[in-house]
Structures are given as C-alpha cells and as structure tokens.
C-alpha cells in the first residue's frame, strides 16, 4: 500500500505561486490549488526513497510542529493526503483542465 502511494506521489508535480501552491497529476489534465500542508506532505513523501510506517509517523509530528497544530497529525491523516487529494477534500479551486 505504501509503495502504491509512493507511485502516486511520483506522478504529482507541484509548484509555488504567489497565491499559493498548485499541483497536477501528470496522468491527467487537471491542475489544482492545494494547501500549504498538502504541498509540504507531498514534498516530504516525494524525496523519501521508500515509505514506511515510522517515516509516516514522524512526518505527522513534523506537520504538527511546522503548522502549529496542537494535536499531532495522525498517521492516518498523512496516509490520507493522497487519497484526499484525489477526493478533492484538501484541494481548493481547480484552475485548469484540458
């Protein structure tokens, strides 16, 4: 399951714009705005060669610290980033499609 997520991350491209982050999945033609948290998580996942539970757990702590979230971001929430990205829950406007 983690390998599958790593593959999803590998097909995502993100970049910072003045108004915030934008992301696309290169397998389809849609570009979205994403939140700072999602961009941070994607970047961390992208540069990690292999995902494991320990890393995901640590990432949850890092997200909580970086974004001043009192409660620790759960492992499940990190797991869910990609799922939620797909489900548009963490996505703001779709800004482009073709």
């Amino acid at each position: 399951m983690l390998d599958e997520k790593k593959m999803i991350v590998n097909t995502l491209k993100i970049r910072k714009e003045k108004f915030g982050w934008i992301a696309c999945d290169i397998n389809n033609c849609r570009v979205f705005e994403i939140s700072d948290i999602v961009a941070y998580v994607i970047n961390k996942l992208r540069f990690q060669s292999a995902l494991n539970d320990e890393f995901i757990d640590k990432l949850g702590q890092q997200v909580s610290l970086k974004f001043n979230i009192n409660k620790q971001i759960s492992k499940q929430k990190i797991h869910n980033v990609l799922y939620e990205l797909k489900q548009k829950k963490w996505i703001k406007n779709e800004i482009y499609s073709c």
Binding site: R15, E17, K18, F19, I22, C24, V31, E33, N93, I95, Y96, C98
Partner: peptide, 11 residues
C-alpha cells in the same frame, strides 16, 4: 477572477 496570475505557464 478565476484566472490566477501564474509566474510561469502550465503547458
């Protein structure tokens, strides 16, 4: 405005 000003093209 829907068209956000991008620093670079997407395509």
């Amino acid at each position: 405005r829907i068209v956000k000003e991008l620093s670079l093209p997407i395509n």
